[in-house]
């Protein structure tokens, strides 16, 4: 992985509203509850071999990983405003928002 991370700390990003598990066997590390949600990059965490490939013993190119922060209440329609959830998300799941 030579390219630098596409997103910097503070960037607003949207998690792709994609459901590969509906299309067939797969292994993904993006939990369902953040798909389609908008969050803020806390910081890039480095680049790691893509688990979606590792899970099938395929060659696994590295992907940038980010800590992304989300507000809890919009996700669940409950909870205390200001409470948050921070999730490790790979770059190919993120788009500019």
């Amino acid at each position: 992985m030579n390219a630098s991370p596409r997103f910097a700390a503070g960037a607003t990003v949207r998690v792709k509203d994609d459901w590969p598990e509906r299309r067939g066997p797969c292994h993904i590390r993006t939990p369902h509850y953040i798909r389609g949600r908008t969050g803020k990059v806390v910081r890039p965490l480095g680049a790691f071999p893509n688990p979606e490939d590792l899970a099938f013993a395929r060659p696994a190119p590295e992907r940038h990983l980010y800590h992304v922060l989300f507000e809890q209440p919009p996700i669940w329609n409950e909870g205390r405003p200001g409470d948050t959830v921070m999730v490790e998300v790979f770059e190919h799941w993120l788009e500019e928002a």
Binding site: W19, E21, R22, P31, H32, Y33, I75, W76
Partner: peptide, 13 residues
């Protein structure tokens, strides 16, 4: 239905 999480994807169920 088309957004039912996979079996292990337990967050908030």
């Amino acid at each position: 239905d088309d957004h039912t999480p996979a079996i292990h994807d337990l967050g908030g169920l």
